[in-house]
Amino acid sequence: MAYSEKVIEHYNNPRNVGSFAKDEANVGTGVVGAPECGDVMKLQLKISDAGVIEDARFKTFGCGSAIASSSYVTELVKGKHIDEAMTIKNTVIVKELNLPPVKIHCSVLAEDAIKAAITDWRKKKGEPVAAPDKAREA
């Protein structure tokens, strides 16, 4: 199976790899996936009091497409308001990275990671947390 150029590019030069301190008040952390499934994504978002995503970091255990998906979303969410980030659909990632059908679950996981990170931040802020989107599963 050949990878798309964009997947290879993100895999070779992943953006925003790393971690923020989990306990910082303005950091939301989302960890999705499971080791036995072969994919775990950790996405961290630094979010301003106004709800704007100022910075993002990721670490991913998974195939090249999973790494590329998470790398891409760190770029995608930066500068966005969390309300807008919550509406990001996995199809945007699929399109950008030209993911084949067998790798769609990687994009779903990346979408879930954004939601999980924002939800975590909201919890920290004591904001009401919407029920997590359970409609799609990896």
């Binding site: 790899v17 499971a34 080791p35 499934c37 670490k59 255990f61 790494i67 999980a116 599963e137």
Partner: peptide, 23 residues
């Protein structure tokens, strides 16, 4: 491994088996 959340967790002393993974 520098990119792996599992490696990071293991280095922090977290037992990966004890984590409640959200799938």
């Amino acid at each position: 491994r520098d990119m792996s959340p599992l490696y990071e967790m293991a280095k922090e002393g977290i037992d990966l088996k004890s984590v409640n993974w959200k799938q």
